Amino acid sequence: PESRGGRPEALGAGLRLSSGAGSGMCLLLGVTGVGKSLLVKRLQTILPSRDGKGDLGDPPPTRPTVGTNLTDIVAQKKITIRELGGCMGPIWSSYYGNCHSLLFMVDASNPTQLSASCVQLLGLLSAEELANASVLILFNKIDLPCYMTIEEMKSLIRLPDLIACAKQNITTLEISAWKGTGLSDVLRWLQDTHRTNG
């Protein structure tokens, strides 16, 4: 699918393996299974309603991403979200060029994955190519009864220390891509970030 007159709607996703640049490139990263693909599909669903308060319906089916998915979202301006599969962690750095913003997802219901996520986040924040990128850390799956609170996760990964040492502007949000909780805030962050930074 392609853009039709810049209407505020999702324009579709396709598998591409090139690292082509976009005017508003946003990287979406996180370990396997944190909900990256579902997040992108949900953002496409809430765009037409604008306020994100409508019923999103049942979550669409997803499967682990192998490779990279590019999705264009038109919300005031075009933002290209490049989702990289968690299994591609060792070569994520190949895609850092031209990155205006970074969405980093953490599974708030999986404490055993937290250390791996923390190591990845440290690597991203220390990457020279991402020094000017705005960063949004998304604590996903807060709909599950076993999720850790944002305070617990901030303490476990020493987030205040990370933020104090990082060059990037870092924001955090608790979301549920499954239920749609917090997704309008994600969209607003993307719009604000790419209005000033893209």
Rank of each mutant, 00 (worst) to 15 (best):
G20S: 11
G123K: 07
T196P: 03
G52A: 06
A10P: 04
K154F: 00
T71R: 10
G6V: 01
A131G: 08
L29Y: 00
S134G: 12
C87M: 12
T65N: 09
S115I: 10
L15C: 06
I150P: 02
S155C: 12
I46Y: 03
E174S: 15
S155N: 12
G33W: 11
L27K: 06
D192E: 13
D192F: 05
R188M: 09
D143S: 09
G67H: 12
R158S: 15
R16H: 09
Y147H: 15
P64M: 07
A127R: 04
T80V: 08
I73W: 05
R4C: 07
S184Y: 06
Q76W: 00
K78T: 10
A166C: 11
F104V: 10
P59D: 03
L187N: 06
G85V: 08
I150K: 15
G14Y: 05
S155E: 15
G97V: 00
L103G: 01
I46F: 01
K77F: 00
L124C: 08
I170L: 09
I142T: 12
K36T: 04
L190T: 08
M25I: 12
E174V: 12
A177Y: 01
Q76I: 02
E9H: 07
F139G: 03
P61Q: 02
L11W: 07
P61Y: 03
R188H: 12
P145T: 06
M153S: 06
D107M: 08
E83A: 11
K53D: 05
L103W: 07
D107G: 08
L84A: 09
V106F: 08
G22T: 10
E128D: 14
G30Q: 02
N132S: 14
S101L: 01
T171R: 06
V40T: 14
T45R: 13
R4Y: 12
S117A: 15
L29T: 01
A166L: 08
Q191L: 07
I79R: 04
A177M: 09
R82W: 10
T80R: 09
C87Q: 12
G20E: 11
G12W: 05
P90E: 06
L43Y: 02
D185K: 12
S37H: 05
S117N: 14
